[in-house]
Nucleic acid binder design. Sequence first.
DNA 1: AAATATACCTATAAATAATAGGTATGTCAA
DNA 2: TTGACATACCTATTATTTATAGGTATATTT
Lengths: 110, 110
Amino acid sequence: MAGSQLLKGTLSTILLKLLADNGRMYGYEIIQNIKKYSSDQINVTEGALYPALHKLESQGYLLTESHKVDGRTRKYYRLSKKGERATVDKLQELQEFLQNISGILAPKTT
Amino acid sequence: MAGSQLLKGTLSTILLKLLADNGRMYGYEIIQNIKKYSSDQINVTEGALYPALHKLESQGYLLTESHKVDGRTRKYYRLSKKGERATVDKLQELQEFLQNISGILAPKTT
DNA sequence: AAATATACCTATAAATAATAGGTATGTCAA
DNA sequence: TTGACATACCTATTATTTATAGGTATATTT
């Protein structure tokens, strides 16, 4: 996809926010969810998603449990207490950054 | 700075936009400008800026001219015709991306 | 004389995502 | 029944991008 490099730096925060909203999700579901919410414009690849989830897990932000559904294994991820706190911080940081970027991108009226 | 990795992918577009607005700028000026516009929150390092400018130049998006001012050399960068076209495309791409991100980050009302 | 600001640059390291590959089950159509 | 496609997990390698840290040099302020 064009402009895919724009995702850099924002993916982990998006993942935390999705889990905060939805309680628990599994990898495949996350990919579909982001695709849908962005009207097919943001395509998170598996090679980006799974390492990102595993890193968040290793940092103690996520807890996991595996369940077999229709013969296939699903690994559910959800926020730990630590992850909930991190989500608040990272969300605020990202929103401030987006505001700053918007300020720079705003058409100049001078 | 915290959250500095958020800049990833957006820097070259920001540079193009700044040059589109200001006609021509030199490296040091760009760093100060971004710092000021973001209220000190976005700090573009030299190690990020100069390679980024040189890449844009090598892609044919920027033209340069050096001038000596107060004993110091300034290298001015400005958009080429090709750079002007690229700016329009990249700006639109970034704005669509920011909208998508905002949509995902918006508080869930469901 | 020393510190700070201005002004350019690059080499190496770190972080992050893409590409491309692997494994496996379920379903639907030819 | 076979082949395509969707679901579901994963990792190794590569590419891209920025940070860190270093270098050079002049002007101004303390």
